[in-house]
Design a binder for these strands. Sequence first.
RNA 1: GCGAGUGUGGCGGAAUGGCAGACGCACGGGACUUAAAAUCCCGAGGAUGAAAGUCCGUGAGGGUUCGACUCCCUCCACUCGCACCA
Length: 806
Amino acid sequence: MKEYDFRSVEKKWQKKWVEEKSFKAIDFHPTKPKFYVLYEFYNISGNLHLGHLKGTVPADALARYKRLQGFNVLFPIGGDAFGLPAENAAIKKGINPHDFVAAGMNSVVEQSKALGLSFDWDRTVCTSDPEYFKWTQWIFLQLLKNGKAYKKKGVVNFCPHCQTVLSNEDSQGGKCDRCGGDVVQEDRWVWFLKMKEYSEKLLENVQRINMAENLKDAQRNWIGKSEGMQVAFDLFDAQENKLGQIEIFTTCIETIYGITFVVLAPENELVDKFKNQISNFDEVMEYRKKTALRTEFERMSDTKQKTGCKLEGLHVVNPVNGAKVPVFLADFVLSGYGTGAVMAVPTHDQRDFEFAQAFGIPMIQVIEGDVSKAAVEKKEYLAKNSLMMNSAEFTSLPVKEAKEKIAQKVIEMGAGRRQTNFKMQDWPFNRQRYWGEPFPVVFCPKCGTVPLDESDLPLVLPQTDDYLPNANGDSPLSKIESFVNCKCPKCGGAAKRETDTMPNWAGSSWYWLRYMDPHNNDALVDIEKAKYWGSVDVYTGGTEHITRHVLYAFFWQNFLYEIGVVPTKDPFVRKMGSGLILDDTGKKMSKSSANGVSPLEVIEKYGADAARLHLHFLGGYEDNTPWTYDGITGITAFLDKVWQLQDMIEGEEVCKQHVFMLNRLIKKVGEDLEDLKLNTCISAFMIFIKKIRDDGFITKDELRQFLLLLNPLAPHITSEMYQQVFGSQILDDKWPEYDEKFLVEDEINLPVQVNGKMRQVVKVSKTASQEDILKLLCEKHPDIFSEGEQLKKVIFVPGKIINLLK
RNA sequence: GCGAGUGUGGCGGAAUGGCAGACGCACGGGACUUAAAAUCCCGAGGAUGAAAGUCCGUGAGGGUUCGACUCCCUCCACUCGCACCA
């Protein structure tokens, strides 16, 4: 047997798989059940690095395993190419984004093929391809027509470096997700998608999906459901004229008798409305200006330093006791959450406590506890169910009871109602950048905002050399006269196009649907095909997009379901978040930090099978794994031993000597592949092969089954060996099945404990009774148990352990 | 601050109530070789012992149990997510 030459063998099979379309998914397969495996498609902003393999290889192994099991597997790939990441990368390299993306797409395809990934290449899509984004634009039109998209001037996150508006999801922690710079708050015209309206539905998606609990928590936390009350306070001027009402949101209605002030977010429009009644208006405007200049990051980092400004000349009245209460502006109140106004109870809310101290506002304690140094907060007083004080007829009641009774009273008075709020905001959907989907919308002086006719899609992105972002944050498209000036689709008069583009998350919010029907010119997906392929069965990829892409995906899928375009509310049945590959300093390996090791480098040195196995032998799927070449010789030695099995064939059928361990291997490999536990799966193969080598032979059928089992992980070497030994293609064979009856060994090693301490291991029959074992101990290990010895108790778990208590 | 998670040999990591350290790397010994590399075989948590064995051992301390890496409580360290969300 000549040595295994991975270079020629791997190339041969990769070529064959592509040419023969070996992994083509069949729509409406007459007999095979469908199985949809998805990997989070490639972001076209750089080369592949080893981090990508953390998601692709397990998905590939699962797809190959399911195919051998007889499923009609859909395993597609594509490119996420529009948006900031690609554009920034292109600008950095000085290449036009069109060319950059074309080259990038080509590169990831070639690298995927070199890894032996079994994608269906006829279904590849790219989000910046007009054939694709035609349907992204189409979805936007449906959102607009169904009242789920609106344009509004509002205070939003803006990145001065990237010169664009960002969503909350893109500016977590007050930092731009793309450049890491500080995000500021700016007043801008923004296209919003009504994602907030879908909060409950998204929570249901989270409930239904099969996913790690910590990831679900992150999503629930992001959506941020909170149940409380909305209460109206009458607003008066200095002469006691009623001006209107201020509505506040609270989850602590039980503290309402302790209110000593009310706080509005600095942006609150009541300030403008009643400017004539505010005697210190200049001071107020100055405070407003000051807070607007603070970055989100600054606002968050000094939370102990409360700032604010009293609205002199205005006050509100507490509806439950008629108390006169002053009104402040302060930036610890967020305009986007609840009503942008809060009732402040310094004795029972730490923020209010700090604010009251800073501004010398009196405090009223309404629940028992020590409020001399800090507020006694909800968490504490609810846990203790402390007693009420200073709260009229509710004084001396336990707080839990009082909470309900006070709520009732406020409702009966007509001053408030129960209200559920969500942290998640509507999705700011436009970017002031060139490289994105143009909005299919025009502004007509006569007709207002007019959507393009669906037949005019796609609205393509005009070619230009002047695509750099503008200093004042206007889209580069606004400079292209031929694009901007157009005719109104409604009245035919002169009109102007929207010149902002959609965010990078637009194209990725529905791409799994397009794979089901990638070449359809009449619909984003044929409804019958969508019914056939259903939801993605297993979705692999990183966890960093869990509160962004995955929530956007839930949102769009729900919307498309409501308008009858797709048959299910759930895009994914199961989402499996992969860990990261870390470099030698413990940092995440990524395209942006330029520490990525190219898979091609590993493939060149050791081969694709070795690269696939080694990376996943290093650690579990969900764990962060430090990358190293150390240990890869163990993998190459293993593959050499696999190759040598061809020389060890003796006999035909599975032999008695090997039947137990072969069945055990089949069971273990199947279970581990379902859960993407590639590391323990690989070790199971190593244990098996060691035993075969000890015995010195393998039968022909044992080898056949072994190759099938290993094929999902190491497809090249197993395909070659199978062809050489059996003369046919491994892909035409079927996954082996195990039989429970072969999984029980006749003889087992039974641990013997004395008083809970391990003393001995005895070999006994699997059916041995307690008496049998005690008898055996008398004969062979009298030091542990001898004839006639008194035992206090014996714990015997058949097949597991025996524990003698003396 | 809130939420979640992790902590096991020299290293990557197995084991989710029943033989801790599977499997692999590095390491030591042996075979092959003039020699080295490669390959193959054997050994190996720590302490003690010639050995059989004994004791200790999964971040620290306590608890539940016949039996705990595994379950519960307290604490320490690290990682991640969210963060003035009323």
